[in-house]
């Protein structure tokens, strides 16, 4: 089922009247990988929470398929929308498989008992994220990157149509970063809609269909559109308030982005 998650002209403030962003219009669509990029504190996580329905915007609307997402029950929304927070601190010691099974929650009955079908889904998601060999390990005893992949598996196990992922590759090695983004691209090809926050502009350039560039300097969007139109030296330098260089990747042809070293300060 094709879905569209839209933020229309939203503004949000944790402590009004101090807006994190205003007049942001963004969308996550089935079949596409949509990237949210921007410097630290620019409001990427906040925008993702607003899109996920966890925060109510001060102004503007969030729509799922054109209907206000506020009218849905949390459970209904959780079947459509999967959300992976930037930081997850579990307090209970569970096995990796149990953690992934927790993702089935919105599909389970009142008592939360998993059926064979739910466990099969969990197995498949472990395989997709290359974590099947961790299946019976204690989640607490995993490395940071292993945890991140298991958590991604648990959100996939939720089987939502749209995935909102907050920096799902921040702790991953160079190989697994590509693996996860390739997985996201494959999922988008299968019809999922994916919204992903990332600091890795090069991966974003390579794998995203749409980019939204946020900056606190403009309390909102600096640019939106195709990666090659957003990832330009002028726009990036404005958003990050620092000199950013863009060239072509010699192998992939995608934009290759680096920040310049700050100029030497002469006393």
């Amino acid at each position: 089922m094709t879905r569209t998650l839209q933020a229309q002209d939203v503004a949000f403030a944790y402590t009004p009247p101090l807006d994190v962003f205003t007049h942001v219009t963004a969308a996550v669509r089935s079949g596409e990988v949509t990237g949210l990029v921007g410097p630290n504190g620019s409001g990427k996580s906040t925008l993702l929470r607003v899109l996920a329905g966890l925060l109510r915007p001060r102004e503007g609307k969030v729509l799922i398929d054109g209907r206000s997402s506020g009218h849905m029950s949390n459970r209904q929304r959780a079947r459509i929308l999967g959300f992976l927070p930037q930081l997850v601190n579990p307090v209970f010691s569970l096995s990796v498989f149990e953690v992934v099974c927790l993702g089935r929650y919105p599909h389970l009955g009142a008592l939360g008992a998993t059926q064979p079908h739910d466990r099969a889904v969990a197995e498949r998601c472990l395989r997709d994220t290359e974590t099947l060999d961790l299946r019976d390990r204690d989640f607490m005893a995993l490395s940071g990157g292993e945890r991140q992949r298991v958590l991604l598996a648990s959100v996939l196990a939720q089987e939502p149509d749209l995935l909102l992922l907050d920096e799902p590759t921040s702790a991953l090695d160079i190989h697994h970063q590509i693996e996860i983004f390739a997985l996201l691209k494959r999922l988008a090809g299968e019809g999922y809609g994916i919204g992903v926050v990332t600091h890795d502009l090069n991966l974003a350039a390579r794998f995203c269909n749409q980019l939204f560039l946020l900056s606190h300097r403009s309390t909102g969007l600096v640019a939106a559109g195709k990666p090659e139109n957003v990832l330009t030296e002028a726009l990036l330098s404005e958003a990050y308030d620092a000199p950013i260089r863009v060239c072509r990747h010699p192998l992939t042809g995608a934009p290759l982005i680096t920040a310049e070293e700050p100029a030497e300060v002469t006393p």
Partner: peptide
Amino acid sequence: LAQAAKFDQLGFGEEMAAGRGVN
């Protein structure tokens, strides 16, 4: 006892639980 499944979700933080549909 009826809240057991929700407590499981809360173990991974309020955001994660809310994202899974727990009020």
